[in-house]
């Protein structure tokens, strides 16, 4: 099956949803894939849920947005509700494990689900800031179209100036990526 994947990510402003989308598509583009990413913005976003639409494919991407995602990621209470419209029977719903109750309420018996304890890991084991990098790792693991090294290079391009000031941040981000990757690829292997 040729690569053709659609991902919708949603969260609160500040959760880093757009950064994940940008890093993921930029890395995909550099790895030689076709990639397209579009955020929601302006009045649509102010005070609302931040949504990113990502598509990676072997063929040039057609429409910038899509009706149903292959993977839909919900990272906040409001996001769970917001992304329902992009979720179909074949969609894998990825969400933070803390949202279990809301997901059950809104999605009932959605067949493909992946709860990721990213908030908990970030807060207890790492740093709240790398929450979105854990999610990035999950997506890399789940989709399998990028090598970890390619993602690390994309992280370097995005955060290199911060890493330069504080090299320990690089290690922190790599660990977050690795941790997410394990969570995602374990599921992907199933």
């Amino acid at each position: 099956m040729p690569l053709n994947i659609k991902i919708a990510l949603a969260g609160e402003g500040g959760q880093g949803v757009q950064s994940v989308a940008e890093i993921l598509t930029e890395a995909a583009y550099r790895a030689g894939h076709q990639a397209l990413y579009i955020p929601n913005f302006g009045v649509e976003q102010r005070g609302g849920v931040s949504v990113a639409f990502v598509q990676v494919s072997e063929q040039p991407v057609s429409a910038p947005k899509f009706t149903t995602g292959d993977i839909v990621v919900a990272l906040s209470y409001r996001a769970v509700e917001r992304v329902k419209q992009y979720t179909g029977a074949a969609t894998t719903l990825v969400y933070d494990a803390s949202l279990e109750e809301e997901v059950r309420e809104v999605y009932g018996d959605q067949p493909r689900k992946l709860a990721v304890p990213a908030l908990e890991i970030a807060q207890k084991e790492m740093h709240p800031r790398v929450f979105n990098v854990i999610i990035l790792g999950v997506l890399v693991g789940l989709t399998g179209f990028l090598k970890q090294q390619e993602v690390k290079e994309a992280l370097e391009r995005q955060f290199g100036h911060k890493f330069a000031r504080d090299p320990s941040l690089r290690d922190l981000n790599y660990r977050a990526l690795e941790r997410g990757y394990q969570l995602g690829s374990r599921r992907g292997a199933k």
Binding site: A35, L36, Y37, I38, F41, V61
Partner: peptide, 9 residues
């Protein structure tokens, strides 16, 4: 607006 805001090669 889509073309304005989206990223692609």
């Amino acid at each position: 607006g889509y073309q304005s805001k989206m990223r692609e090669p």
